[in-house]
Amino acid sequence: MPAAIKAIGLGVASLAFMIAGTMLGPRPAVAQTSFLNVSYDPTRELYRAINQKFEEETRPQGKKINIRMSHGGSGSQARAVIDGLDADVVTLALAADIDEIARRTNRIPSDWQKRLPNNSAPYTSTIVFLVRKGNPKGIRDWDDLIKPGIQVITPNPKTSGGARWNYLAAYAYGVERRGGDQQAQAFVAQIFKNAPVLDTGARGSTNTFARRGIGDVLLAWENEAFLALDELGADKFEIVVPSISILAEPPVTLVDGNVDRKGTRAIAQAYLEFLYSPTAQAVIAKHYYRPMKPDAAAPQDVARFPDIKLVTIDQFFGGWDEAQRKHFADGGIFDAILKSNR
């Protein structure tokens, strides 16, 4: 049937139209080097500043560099890279998400975390509380979060990297101060019972708490809490530092499979190393992340960080692999908590 052939031809033609149309799309110009940094939610301001510095540093060498950024929840960003988002470097909230990319795509070697200093984390952070000005509910430490009538705002640990650190910090407190795993699990369950909203990302939670006026206390990244004071008003909120928290190490790495295909390994590697440079470390401290090399940062920036007893994921939870499996995997402790809380 010639008409059928004509019809299929037309169908193919319209696809061709679609493809032709997309060719006109905004593509990175060929003349300049560009690479894609896929990062998590709260680092938007940080990387905007770092990228600017990096571009300034490389300009004398005659290179025009275009750093493309993508931000979102850490888990959702890892998912996008697994599904083919062409990231040259990933800078995520926790090692488990990068492990997942390595395991599922083989585009990152499994020992990636040993490739850069400090477990591949150019900065660290921790989890603190943000409360409303004057601390009307008198929240001083983790114990206060389980009091009846207290509303705790945290993102969903299943989707948000920050929320996993929140959860683990609370769990660590439970183990240390309440006597063991069983007690810790019950303690964390009580905290989540007091959570009226579980946003999918850290930023969503900050907005819920700060902008929408929901809840009495926000469990947040330290950098996120400081930024909220800056952006949303130091007259509205204050930071409460708990007695125990966790040392959060947001790691960075090359996506080898992608940089080798695109020929961007050198520049991407230079970018990651730049994160450890004194210039970048100063920017990092300025944006309220704890720099790996505090000496490089302005002393008044470093002085802002409170002294907290920090437990580490490796010592306390046996590393991310173990923590992920025990707490956050399907049927893990967190699932059990959700089920018991319903």
Binding site: G75, S76, R104, K158, T159, A195, V197, D330
Partner: peptide, 25 residues
């Protein structure tokens, strides 16, 4: 509110499952 068992709707759960790398789910 995205609270499981209370205010979590099916389309959001699809997205959450995806973000947990749970394609089957």
């Amino acid at each position: 509110g995205n609270i499981p068992y209370v205010s979590e709707i099916a389309p959001i759960l699809i997205v959450i499952r995806l973000e947990e790398f749970n394609y089957a789910g």
